[in-house]
Design a protein around this nucleic acid. Structure first.
Length: 606
DNA sequence: CTCACTCGGATAGAAGTC
DNA sequence: GACTTCTATCCGAGTGAG
């Protein structure tokens, strides 16, 4: 099961970068088709039952056990928050694991999954330390708690029915779950509604707990008290304004009750070529220190609280926020959490062009003087339609020269929004895929061979190669004999391209990527440029602890775990499902943490 | 307050397949 | 002709800076 394709390419490693086509890095989360068939039994179980709510709770428990969670932990998790919200459940289990690893006590819940002051305390005396050693999914003796499991499973259906009713009334699932926890499963519906209303009046303290406060105080104490108070006040106002609308309060699961992490200005991370912050020193928490090195990426501008949650799971490491506009001709605001050294970094040479005209001198010819843009905005996954560019052309043709300010403003706004370039008199056009490849640091035609729409999408989801390579450059001297890499959410292989451009040999890459086109792109590039072993796997969910351990054993551990999890539910462009970390795609972040944690454990045993 | 920016999604209709 | 797949087009809100 879950076998990847293995390629031991023996082609030469002499991949030539085109002199006029230098591209930069990217290996971010590309289009992830969650419906695509995966190789593993696990995935089939998941899509059959869980999503439809038809799976028996027994198989649900088994599924999480397969992922490496102890059975008691899974049952407790389902008891606490139900089984409908898979992402919340996964987050809760991982939180248990984090708390267990830290030796914390058992009455902490995830940031908002359950009411902190009303716990089902009767069975909470759990031994977190022993959970990790309990991999026996079979005939294990029940403890005193599990005799009630069958009753509990039956009870859940009644609970779910009420939750569905509350959700149907416009309350969020979090709120419904919380009310059930507070008032009990047998509580009348109107009592549950009253409970939720009361929690609004009380502000947002209902979803905070001791664990959150401790962590936040420890990690983000730079946040001023006055600002804290102001944000708390604003959130209260907002809740009142939005009332009980289903989308009015989606905060608790993504940790957005926590304080907002401020983005630096200028957004240059710990340092960048030409933007050296004065003597940045950082002390990594003990748990964060490798092996392996790891590198995580996502969009910088997320809904509130997301980066705090990500940081909390990734060993409380402070994110490094970088806008690639300082290293290229296009903006790309991203956050990176990693445990790499930050001293003695070196950029890829030659440095990429930092303005539009340096990158594409020929566009100067038709560029009107009233278009002040010198850099592109973020390269996204979709491009302007022909209708849009046609409208602009017609509008300009009917206008004077130069056009009146109102027309200028409209045109500039559209150009900024869609990253249009001037290709003729009054004529604008979207960037071509090979131009996007160039701006992002990929070799020319890296994505060629798949449909144009697919190319834009994969590139838009990708890393900026030069930025990532700058951060990874410290590995070159540390691993003169090459690295073995676990690449999650590989996309079109931005991380791999970055390592290659740095001259770092990849002995082995285990790549996990759901998109078939992206896997094909990576393999095409690998076979041309690499001599190491490439193993391609479709779905992160299929990476069970056993499989991970087998790869750890086979390759003598991983030197680097790299990946950017899906941003679909975090990105501002998403009008429909910007749901934060609990979103359908973005919740896959928790698998990044889960897998990284398993790798760390397996390597610690080596 | 205004302004600028954002690794996207749903849908209808076209195009392809059987 | 039914069905699937691909493509083009349209669709604001959340957030922070000034």
């Amino acid at each position: 099961m879950s076998q990847g394709l293995t390629s031991d390419s023996d082609d030469s490693d002499k991949f030539e970068w085109e002199s006029d086509g230098e591209a930069a890095p990217s290996s971010a989360p590309a289009l992830r088709n969650l419906d695509a068939p995966g190789p593993s039994t696990l995935e089939r179980q998941s899509s059959n039952g869980w999503a439809n709510g038809e799976a028996t709770s027994t198989s649900l428990v088994e599924e999480y056990v397969t992922m490496g969670f102890p059975k008691e932990m899974v049952v407790k998790g389902i008891k606490e928050i139900g089984h409908d919200d898979a992402n919340a459940l996964l987050e809760l289990l991982l939180t248990y694991k984090v708390l267990g690893d830290e030796g914390a006590l058992g009455n902490c819940s995830t940031s908002g999954c359950a009411c902190p002051n009303v716990q089902d305390d009767d069975d909470d005396d759990l031994d977190f330390d022993n959970w990790d050693n309990d991999n026996d999914t079979g005939g294990r003796e029940h403890n005193s708690d599990s005799s009630g499991d069958e009753d509990f499973l039956q009870e859940m259906s009644a609970k779910d029915e009420k939750i569905n009713l509350l959700v149907g009334m416009g309350f969020s699932e979090d709120e419904a779950n919380m009310a059930m926890t507070t008032c009990g499963v047998d509580a009348d519906l109107c009592v549950l509604v009253d409970s939720i209303s009361a929690s609004w009046v009380a502000g947002d303290c209902h979803s905070r707990n001791l664990f959150d406060d401790q962590v936040m105080d420890r990690c983000f104490d730079s946040f001023g008290e006055r600002k804290k108070a102001r944000l708390m006040e604003e959130r209260k106002k907002k809740r009142k304004r939005y009332g009980g609308g289903a989308h009015g309060n989606r905060s608790s699961l993504d940790g957005s009750d926590d304080e907002q992490m401020l983005l630096p200005n200028p957004m240059v991370g710990f340092n960048l070529p030409g933007y050296r912050r004065p003597s940045v020193m950082r002390m990594l928490p003990q748990q964060a220190i490798g092996p392996p090195f790891f590198y995580y990426e996502n969009v910088a501008r997320t809904p509130r609280g997301v980066w705090e949650t990500i940081s909390r799971f990734l060993y409380d490491i402070e994110p490094e926020f970088v806008d690639s506009m300082h290293l290229s001709a296009a903006a790309r605001k991203r956050g990176y959490i990693h445990n790499l050294p930050i001293e003695n970094r070196s950029p890829l040479l030659p440095l990429p062009p930092k303005t539009i005209f340096e990158a594409f001198p020929h566009y100067k010819k038709w560029w009107p003087s009233w278009d002040p843009r010198r850099q592109f905005n973020c390269l996204q996954t979709t491009m302007a339609s022909a209708k849009t560019t046609e409208r602009i052309q017609c509008l300009l043709a009917r206008s004077s020269n130069p056009p009146p300010p109102s027309v200028q403003k409209y045109v500039i706004d559209e150009c900024r929004k869609w990253n249009l370039v001037w290709v003729g008199k009054n004529k604008v056009a979207p960037l071509e895929p090979n131009e996007v490849e160039y701006l992002l640091g990929f070799p020319r035609d890296h994505t060629r061979g798949v449909g144009k729409t697919e190319r834009y999408k994969s590139l838009g989801n990708s890393f900026h190669v030069d930025t990532v390579a700058y951060h990874l450059s410290v590995l070159r001297d540390m691993f003169p004999n090459g690295v073995s890499v676990l690449s999650l959410f590989t996309g079109i292989g931005g991380g791999e391209v970055a390592l290659h451009r740095l001259g770092i040999h990849m002995r082995a890459v285990v790549s996990v990527e759901i998109g078939e086109a992206n896997r094909r792109i990576l393999r095409g590039w690998w076979d041309q440029t690499q001599t190491g072993t490439l193993i391609e796997i479709a779905d992160v969910k299929s990476l069970t602890p056993d499989i991970i351990a087998s790869y750890v054993g086979r390759f003598g551990g991983f030197d680097l775990v790299i990946g950017g999890s899906p941003c679909n539910n975090l990105a501002g462009s998403n009008r429909h499902h910007r749901d934060g970390l609990e979103g359908e795609q973005s919740s896959l972040f928790y698998h990044y943490f889960r897998i990284l944690d398993v790798v760390k454990s397996a390597m610690a045993r080596m």
